[in-house]
């Protein structure tokens, strides 16, 4: 039987209360939301917090929708909510593509966006999707809210810019009218972590690519991004040759490791091919006001 080691439990009733609890209990305390990363880690003794601070009651972290010229995704938004939201699909189909292949429907009912990002697993899907769209993470501490570009958020495997005493409260994604986006993943079986996955966002203007965002996961891409391939694309005409070359560049710059999901050469091949595919789909979606499909 797998059960976590003993810990104490606190239920936060507001963001300031959660921050006060984090301060009182110090670095051996952990925030718990959906628990679908942390509880398995605790069962395996890979995490052994002394205190859990439950933020599930903080409705202010469940906001999801357009605010001004950005999409705001609260940290406590469940995967299933992100997948079900029509505005998310209209402006950022990449998130619907990704959520369809994250875990399974029952896990998606419980797991949260913020929890996935804070777990910072090097194979996590949303990390690549948010990297592709260049989101901003909103991190709140005793001194107020810090805005952290998502590509500075992940410091390494299982390590983020959220300092002790701070809380990820949400993500903001600037809406680019007419942009297209897409996500694609290769997995061994339904609901598994990716062998490799890629996401992209493309904004076109005057017949050329005005903005390119490429996210990669499970292939050792630094900050879940492919900046060299992005730089190659900007200013070029969209098309099969450019997308294939961008895939080749992204594959050359990532650093996959062999594991039970496959050898490094296979993952590198997937990185290039998936980048090519998501660029093609993002370009097809770009310019269509409804975005999705």
């Amino acid at each position: 039987m797998q059960v976590p080691a003993r810990f104490e439990y606190e239920r936060a009733n507001s963001v300031p209360h959660a921050l006060a609890l984090l301060e009182r209990h110090g670095p051996e305390s952990r925030v718990i939301a959906g628990g679908h990363s942390l509880i398995p880690m605790m069962k395996l003794r890979l995490a052994r917090p002394e205190v859990l601070i439950d933020i599930n009651g903080l409705a202010e972290l469940s906001a999801l929708g357009v605010e001004g010229d950005a999409l705001l995704v609260g940290a406590l938004v469940r995967h299933a909510e992100l997948l079900a939201d029509p505005e998310v699909g209209r402006y950022f189909p990449i998130f619907h593509d990704a959520e369809r292949v994250i875990a399974d429907p029952v896990v998606r009912n419980r797991g949260t966006v913020g929890g996935s990002l804070c777990q910072a697993d090097p194979s996590e899907d949303l990390s690549a999707a948010f990297a592709a769209v260049r989101a901003t993470a909103l991190v709140q501490g005793p001194g107020g809210v810090r805005e952290v570009p998502i590509r500075d958020f992940h410091r390494g495997p299982y390590e983020t810019a959220v300092e002790p005493g701070e809380l990820l409260t949400g993500l903001r994604v600037p809406i680019r009218p007419g942009a297209g986006s897409a996500y694609e993943k290769v997995e061994r079986r339904a609901g598994d972590w990716p062998v490799a996955a890629a996401g992209s966002l493309l904004r076109l203007g005057d017949g050329v690519i005005a903005e390119a965002g490429i996210g990669l996961t499970a292939v050792g891409a630094e900050h879940f991004a492919a900046p060299e391939a992005e730089a190659y694309l900007v200013g070029r005409a969209p098309g099969a040759a450019a997308f294939a070359e961008a895939g080749r560049i992204a594959a050359a710059h990532c650093n996959p490791r062999a594991d039970q999901r496959g050898p490094a050469a296979y993952k590198r091949h997937l990185a290039g091919e998936l980048v090519r595919r998501v660029l093609t789909r993002a370009a097809a979606r770009a310019g269509s006001p409804e975005g999705e499909e």
Binding site: I32, I39, K43, V106, N109
Partner: peptide, 28 residues
Amino acid sequence: DTSNCGACVVHLDGTPVKSCTVLAVMCD
């Protein structure tokens, strides 16, 4: 016990969840 198999699914406030990966104390 690892939120894979789904044998432990129950509805929590009307939504199916894997109860091996939910703490009872969170269901107060």
